[in-house]
């Protein structure tokens, strides 16, 4: 790419940035009070969870999170359809193996804690799932080719668990005469916890499988 084109692109990007700031800064000064935030914080007792972000993610905007888990599943299916994974790393030395033996259980424990704590304080399914995924990454770096994941059929089950739990809860509620994912207030906390637990496992398995980066061995075409 020649110098003049680069200069032109830099200039256009700067103009775009100036235009965005020109829109953003006056808008910020005249912005009305956020009604959505007030409503979200006021309705929180109905959801049974104390953390407003968890309430938004799994109650008010549950469709959003359901479809996000579907995106995660679709990305994993895309990765699996592109062929076998990269070769595993060589087996780690004794010192690293000893550290992994400590770190992986701690990561799993911390993931479970974040899942449970996410109802009241910062944390939740995504952070807990990320720690489970990180445990998988550590295991793969230590030489385990499957990143601690089970055999191929179980991986499929784990990866679809999040979407599955969401849809099953939604359908059961539909069968009981409520709207899809419209939790009754008395059960809301426990339904959210069930969905979050399934989502944590699914996110952890999906992220670890994405790090492996290919279809697990044993799959049939």
């Amino acid at each position: 790419m020649n110098g003049r084109l680069r200069l032109l692109i830099a200039l256009l990007a700067a103009v775009l940035g100036a235009a965005l700031l020109w829109v953003f800064l006056p808008l910020l000064a005249t912005r009305p009070e956020s009604a959505l935030a007030k409503a979200a914080l006021a309705a929180r007792p109905l959801t049974g969870v104390g953390n407003p972000v968890t309430a938004v993610l799994l109650d008010y905007r549950a469709y959003d999170t359901l479809l996000e888990l579907a995106v995660l599943l679709a990305a994993l299916l895309g990765i699996w359809s592109l062929g076998p994974p990269t070769p595993a790393y060589q087996r780690a030395g004794a010192a690293l193996r000893a550290m992994i033996a400590w770190v992986v259980p701690l990561l799993v424990l911390a993931g479970g804690y974040l899942l449970w704590a996410g109802g009241q304080v910062p944390g939740g399914a995504f952070q807990g799932g990320a720690l489970l995924g990180a445990a998988g990454v550590v295991l793969r770096l230590g030489g385990d080719p499957h990143a601690g994941l089970p055999a191929e059929p179980w991986q499929r089950l784990l990866a679809s668990l999040g979407v599955g739990a969401f849809v099953i809860v939604g359908l059961v509620l539909l069968g009981l005469g409520r709207d899809f994912l419209d939790y009754p207030s008395a059960w809301a906390k426990w339904l959210i916890l069930v969905i979050e637990s399934a989502a944590t496992l699914a996110i952890g398995a999906t992220l670890a499988a994405a790090y492996v980066g290919g279809r697990p061995p044993g799959g049939t075409r």
């Binding site: 953390n51 972000v53 968890t54 990269t86 910062p122 952070q127 990320a130 990454v137 790090y211 980066g213």
Partner: peptide
């Protein structure tokens, strides 16, 4: 804090691990 936790664990942690493997290649 929720988003900060997620960014540290997912964005920087796992995203970084994925990209490091690619950068190594």
């Amino acid at each position: 804090p929720d988003v900060a936790l997620a960014e540290a664990a997912i964005g920087a942690g796992l995203g970084g691990a994925l990209m490091l493997a690619a950068a190594r290649r």
